[in-house]
Computed example of a mutant assay.
Amino acid sequence: MRNPIELLLGNLDDKRKWRAYRARVKQLPAGYREAAKGLEHYVMNFGPVDDGPTLVRMFDDLADLLERSAADGLPIREVVGDDPADFMETFLDTYRGTGKSWVEKERRRLASTIDKAIQEQDREAGR
């Protein structure tokens, strides 16, 4: 049986991991923190999944990459390349199919709605 608090607030472990990720990002040098903010925003808007555990894993991996790059003194441009969106799409490709996608859910919903519309049209036409 799930913890009653988790029923109201969601998975507490995911929330703890999210807070840990945010704390890690705060420890990055200023430029890397700003890059993390932009990359995080991109993931939240264009990410391939919307389930907590996959998102937490994705952000942990992103924090690992940024921490290692900062420790090695690697310029941010060398991390993300000339096209940061392309970099993020490549990064996100590793997570596609590993969790629930709101985009896939909406595609299924659209297909179902169109199927129902065609059935209704056929019924009205007496087919």
Rank of each mutant, 00 (worst) to 15 (best):
E6M: 08
L7G: 09
L8F: 08
L9D: 08
L12V: 12
D14T: 12
R16Y: 13
R16E: 15
R16M: 15
K17A: 15
R22L: 14
G31H: 09
Y32C: 09
R33K: 14
E34G: 05
E34D: 14
G38D: 12
H41R: 15
Y42V: 05
V43S: 06
V43W: 12
N45R: 15
N45F: 09
F46T: 09
P48Y: 06
V49D: 00
D50F: 01
G52R: 10
P53M: 06
T54A: 08
L55A: 01
R57C: 04
F59K: 08
F59G: 03
L62V: 00
A63H: 00
D64N: 08
L65M: 12
L65E: 13
E67V: 12
E67P: 01
R68K: 08
D72Q: 11
L74P: 02
L74V: 13
I76E: 00
G81H: 01
D82N: 13
P84K: 04
M88Q: 05
T90N: 10
F91Y: 14
G97W: 03
V103T: 00
R109F: 04
S112R: 12
S112I: 07
T113C: 05
I118Y: 14
D122G: 04
E124F: 13
A125R: 11
G126L: 02
R127P: 01
